[in-house]
Amino acid sequence: MTGTDEMPEAAGRVFDAVSGNWVDRFAPAGTRPYLRLSRADRPIGTWLLLLPCWWGVLLAAGATGWRWFDLWIIVGCALGAWLMRGAGCTWNDITDRHIDGSVARTRSRPIPSGQVTVRQAAVWMAAQALIALAILLTFNTTAILMGILSLAPVAIYPFAKRFTWWPQVFLGIAFNWGALLAWAAHTGSLSLPPLLLYLSGIAWTIFYDTIYAHQDREDDALIGIKSTARLFGDKTHLVLRLFMMATTLLMTAAIVTALIGADNIPRLLIALTGVWAFGWHMTWQLSRLDIDDGARCLSLFRANRDAGLIPALFFAVALLV
């Protein structure tokens, strides 16, 4: 590594953290390793966990009518996404502590770099999960049960890359659970539209996390870690185009089944416009993708915050009709 590559580790910073992030600049020194475990210096993951939640509650409100409690669902999901993403990432770092030390991008993380012990990380993980549970308990029974069930894919995901070429599927199962939970928090039940929305989110996760995984393709091959980036290889553009199509078609189906009806035609058209704009953004990402350029892959991965905000914004506008 060059001298500039070593700087983040020497300063206690994580190598792929956002430059000038608030954790490194403003957080008290003693809290920084724990905030880094929670990826507070890399907020994109929180957005990617939160956005399916907002899709779910906004589409449910479009289908059955806005309620003021939905405002708390939106806020509660935002708080819960930050906490559960933090708890999940802490768990991931605990389980991957030996692997992370062998990968250039991850060896500066708090556990392999010695900033925190495994015991300290476990206590921090539990604290975040308990606060998230307190928020979850303000929702209805169906949503609470969905929240408890979400712990299973969260627990399994860190091990997926050891036994399958498709760990991104397991990430998608975990990261898009909020679409089901938020729909249930609004309606008290589940039906076909949230299931289609959930499947759309899983396809989207495979899309963006394959782009992300191309950063580690060579290191993963050396230590025997599986990923869709390694599986797709030179066919990545073609395969991701298929997942892009699956994302938009499944979300279109979710919107149509949720909003179909004479009274909802304007709302339906606005929501569908958001999906098509979402698909355009993913098409733009593919046009820019160079799987051999790690910096480009990271930049495009982060661009999925804006991509996912597009349908959320259009769903919100549709509620005004």
Rank of each mutant, 00 (worst) to 15 (best):
214 H>T: 10
171 L>K: 09
165 W>Y: 13
212 Y>Q: 10
159 F>Q: 14
213 A>G: 10
164 T>N: 09
197 L>E: 03
165 W>L: 07
196 L>E: 04
221 A>G: 03
192 L>N: 00
156 I>R: 02
181 L>V: 15
183 W>D: 12
161 K>V: 05
223 I>K: 02
154 V>G: 02
191 S>K: 03
164 T>S: 15
175 F>I: 09
187 T>I: 03
196 L>I: 05
218 E>I: 14
209 D>R: 13
219 D>A: 15
170 F>M: 15
205 T>M: 04
207 F>A: 07
197 L>G: 02
173 I>E: 06
164 T>K: 12
209 D>Q: 11
219 D>V: 01
187 T>W: 00
159 F>E: 04
151 L>K: 00
208 Y>E: 05
217 R>A: 15
152 A>C: 02
202 I>T: 03
201 G>L: 01
208 Y>P: 08
187 T>E: 14
217 R>L: 09
200 S>C: 02
177 W>H: 13
176 N>T: 14
223 I>C: 03
164 T>D: 09
186 H>G: 07
217 R>Q: 15
192 L>D: 00
170 F>I: 15
201 G>M: 01
214 H>K: 13
206 I>E: 04
202 I>N: 03
206 I>T: 08
186 H>M: 05
161 K>A: 05
210 T>H: 11
159 F>P: 00
216 D>L: 06
191 S>P: 03
153 P>K: 04
182 A>I: 07
177 W>T: 13
184 A>Y: 12
194 P>G: 07
